[in-house]
Amino acid sequence: MAGIEKDYYNILEGLKEKIRLARQKAALAVNRELLQVYWEIGNAILQQQKEEGWGKKIISRLAKDLKSEFDDMKGLSERNLVYMQTFAGTWPHYPFTQPLVAETQDELKKPGSTITQPAVAELQSAENKAGVIVHVAPAQLTKEELIKEVIS
């Protein structure tokens, strides 16, 4: 009977690890997609400003219309759209995280690897040390902090 128990716990531990890994991969995928969308929104604003001289009123209108369409989604305020615009302007050649995804997946396979979201307080203290590009995690990170967060 002891052998059956040992086999059961081995299977259980293996399944728990698979679930943890799947959760980590899902979190990475969500963050990657959100960053891509934030950059695309910011880039669209930048392009329109260059072509047509858009001002703050258009950003305000965009925020209102996007919030109206996606009322369940947070982060589409006027202030955040300005942050997205700053993000796209700071890194015009985004997506810079694509090559890092494979590296991160390799890191996730290591025993004990976890991905955590930094606390807002950590981000705010980082804000005093270096130029911050956009709003709260993962968007309120410097390029170095963002890369470190994706890898760790």
Rank of each mutant, 00 (worst) to 15 (best):
3 G>L: 14
9 Y>H: 14
13 E>T: 07
13 E>H: 03
16 K>M: 06
16 K>V: 09
18 K>P: 01
19 I>S: 12
19 I>D: 13
24 Q>S: 11
26 A>N: 04
29 A>P: 00
32 R>V: 01
32 R>F: 14
32 R>G: 02
40 E>V: 02
45 I>W: 10
47 Q>W: 07
50 K>D: 15
52 E>M: 12
53 G>V: 13
53 G>P: 15
53 G>K: 07
57 K>Q: 10
64 K>C: 02
64 K>N: 03
64 K>Q: 05
65 D>P: 00
65 D>V: 06
67 K>G: 06
73 M>K: 11
73 M>A: 10
75 G>P: 02
76 L>E: 02
77 S>M: 11
79 R>H: 08
80 N>F: 03
80 N>E: 09
83 Y>Q: 08
87 F>C: 09
91 W>V: 05
94 Y>F: 13
95 P>K: 06
95 P>C: 10
96 F>S: 05
98 Q>L: 04
100 L>G: 08
101 V>D: 04
102 A>R: 07
105 Q>C: 08
108 L>M: 15
109 K>Q: 14
113 S>C: 02
115 I>C: 01
115 I>V: 06
120 V>I: 14
127 E>H: 12
127 E>N: 09
128 N>Q: 14
130 A>W: 01
130 A>V: 15
133 I>G: 01
140 Q>V: 03
141 L>K: 04
144 E>H: 04
145 E>Q: 15
146 L>C: 01
147 I>D: 05
149 E>C: 08
